[in-house]
Amino acid sequence: MPTLFADSNLWWRIATVPVYVGSIVLTAELLHRYTDTAPEQVRKVVHIGTGNVIILAWLLDLPAWVGITSGILAAIITLISYRLPILPGVNSVGRKSLGTFFYAVSIGIVTAVFWTLDLPYFGVIGILIMAWGDGLAAIIGQRFGKHPYTILGNTKSWEGTLTMLIVSYAIVSLVLLTVHGNTWQTWVVGIPVAIVATGVESIAQWGLDNLTVPLSSAGLAFLVDRFLAGSSHL
């Protein structure tokens, strides 16, 4: 997939990352302070919004060190925010979770791995499944979930789980469609990835899904895609 603005000044492209993330966090804080938006909904604004930064990194052809550095800095800031009220709109949901920290770590890891391999779209798949799949699953589950179930102490809804499954498959297929075009492999890779991502999200606790879902999704998408690519030449 051709990148956008790849020939533009590197520092201009890098500057878009803090500007974008800062606008998302500011929006969340304004919602938290001046509206009656529920804390969990505020978190989902940040969760989904900041995850999209991986698309910027891909389209703007940012080097791996930008994502790695951003992940480290974000992880440090979130750890501090658990002690000091610097991000009340993000961490005021009334439950113990290191999810925001794990989210930052996952962005750093997938960037370090897949940008280095010159296969950034697998990192994009992992982060977007976490951002949109998990984010929309929580929103749908809380608003429309009428059929709950419990697994390993986690209470979920079948409506939310189905949302996670569908969105995960759609993300994998759409990303690979932009890279490989309309091939049969494009539409097959998402099946096992969506199933695994949904299963991992269902059993994770303490916000650990923000790490395990992106890494397992990106890694499995890479392995299945490479396997199918090899099989097509046999």
Rank of each mutant, 00 (worst) to 15 (best):
M1S: 09
L4N: 06
N9F: 00
N9V: 03
N9Y: 07
N9A: 06
L10W: 03
L10H: 00
W12I: 14
V19Y: 11
T27K: 02
E29C: 04
T37Y: 00
E40T: 08
Q41W: 04
H47Y: 03
H47P: 02
T50W: 03
I54T: 10
L56G: 06
L56Y: 08
D61F: 03
W65N: 15
T78F: 14
I80T: 14
Y82W: 09
R83P: 00
P85M: 11
P85C: 04
P85N: 14
I86G: 14
P88S: 03
P88L: 08
V90S: 13
G94A: 07
L98E: 04
A104G: 12
V110P: 06
T111F: 10
A112R: 03
F114K: 08
W115Q: 01
G123S: 04
V124M: 03
I129E: 10
A131H: 04
D134R: 05
I140N: 02
I140C: 02
Q142I: 05
G145V: 01
H147W: 02
P148G: 05
G153F: 09
W158P: 15
I166E: 12
V167Q: 11
S173V: 13
N182H: 09
N182R: 14
W184S: 12
V188W: 14
V189S: 10
P192W: 11
V193F: 05
V196R: 12
T198Y: 07
W206V: 11
N210R: 13
L211Q: 14
G219A: 09
A221D: 04
L228I: 01
H233S: 09
